[in-house]
């Protein structure tokens, strides 16, 4: 049977310290980005309209971005927060801070007055959005704690369990830092993606731990087998998510929600490749060769 061989690292050539250094460094940089972002903006990641409140209007027009801002600001007393191209063709996403019903009415009638076709309007009050933000953070926290507890129950030993949890933690933190760098806001879609990552990214770690701890065979042999399966899994998922991101992006179909879910999952799964096969592997090797002996 001819098989496509997954490239593997010759782990025997590197010490645990060397292996751990790269993922820890990346994690440190990611945390620094998040802390820096928090210091600058007051939030670990910029929340989108779903969490701050505001009105988002998608209009179809041949006017330019400057003309659109002008059109709204001359007709309403509300400041245009941003104008972005959306979807394919002549669709623009215009955002405002104003959310009250009467304000939204004024904004939509201004759009009609300017001759724009309203494709979508969505507004969320600040109070509702604040509650959503609280729930989203609570949800991510609860999901992470729940996952960690389950991992400890599954393996019942400290080092292998903490290896999985640490790797999952990094899998969440790195995409959040990347969201800041690429200017992706925290939306309902990205929250869903982060939660999905908590469940998704531990798969390859579970597989690795299972092979190393519960199977016969040498450490390196087990790791190699787990890696062959695990890398295939993660690459398959990355392929599915990259394609989804690309196809649904505004350059092709312009479907909302799907690109942001996809891109965060691609970030997280890529981070997971590094975390599983550098961080988790070295912690497991430490546990296998030194942790148990002590």
């Amino acid at each position: 049977m001819s098989r496509f061989e997954v490239q593997t690292i010759d782990y025997t050539r590197y010490s645990n310290r060397q292996l751990v250094a790269i993922p820890l460094l990346v994690l440190a940089v990611a945390l620094a980005v998040i802390v820096g972002w928090y210091a600058l903006t007051g939030a670990p990641v910029s929340p989108g309209i779903a969490f701050t409140g505001g009105t988002e209007l998608q209009v179809s027009t041949t006017a330019s971005s400057g003309e659109i801002t002008q059109a709204f600001e001359s007709r309403t007393p509300y400041e245009v927060e941003s104008v972005q191209q959306a979807g394919s063709g002549n669709s623009w996403l215009v955002t405002f801070q104003a959310t009250e019903n009467s304000e939204v009415r004024q904004i939509t009638s201004a759009a009609e007055d300017a001759g724009y076709t309203i494709e979508s309007v969505s507004s969320r009050s600040a109070s509702f959005s604040g509650e959503s933000q609280r729930q989203a953070l609570l949800g991510i926290g609860a999901a992470f704690v729940g996952m960690s507890l389950l991992v400890f129950v599954l393996f019942r030993t400290f080092v292998p369990s903490i290896a999985v949890v640490a790797s999952a933690f990094s899998d969440i933190v790195i995409p959040i830092a990347l969201m800041n760098i690429f200017g992706i806001k925290l939306t309902l879609g990205t929250v869903a993606a982060l939660l999905m990552l908590i469940g998704y990214s531990v798969d390859s770690d579970l597989l690795l731990n299972n092979h190393v701890l519960r199977r016969s065979g040498s450490f390196y042999e087990s790791t190699y087998r787990a890696m062959r399966t695990g890398v295939t899994m993660t690459v398959t998922s990355i392929a599915a998510m990259s394609v989804m991101t690309l196809v649904s992006s505004r350059f092709v179909f312009g479907i909302p929600l799907l690109p942001e879910v996809g891109i965060v999952l691609v970030f997280g799964l890529t981070a997971d490749l590094m975390n599983t096969y550098l961080l988790n592997v070295s912690l497991l090797r430490y546990y296998k060769y030194e942790g148990i002996a002590k």
Binding site: A50, S132, Q135, A136, L138, G139, I140, A142, A143, F144, G146, M147, L150, V151, L154, L188, V191, A192, L195, M196, I198, G199, Y200, V202, D203, L206, L207, N210, R214
Partner: peptide, 25 residues
């Protein structure tokens, strides 16, 4: 064993969304 464990973590990770009413999610 792995599949069951992975399924359990996914369900646990997503259950806050199903219970908390983040509405759209």
């Amino acid at each position: 064993w792995v599949i069951g464990a992975a399924a359990a973590t996914t369900i646990i990770a997503l259950s806050p969304l199903a219970v908390l009413s983040l509405g759209d999610l």
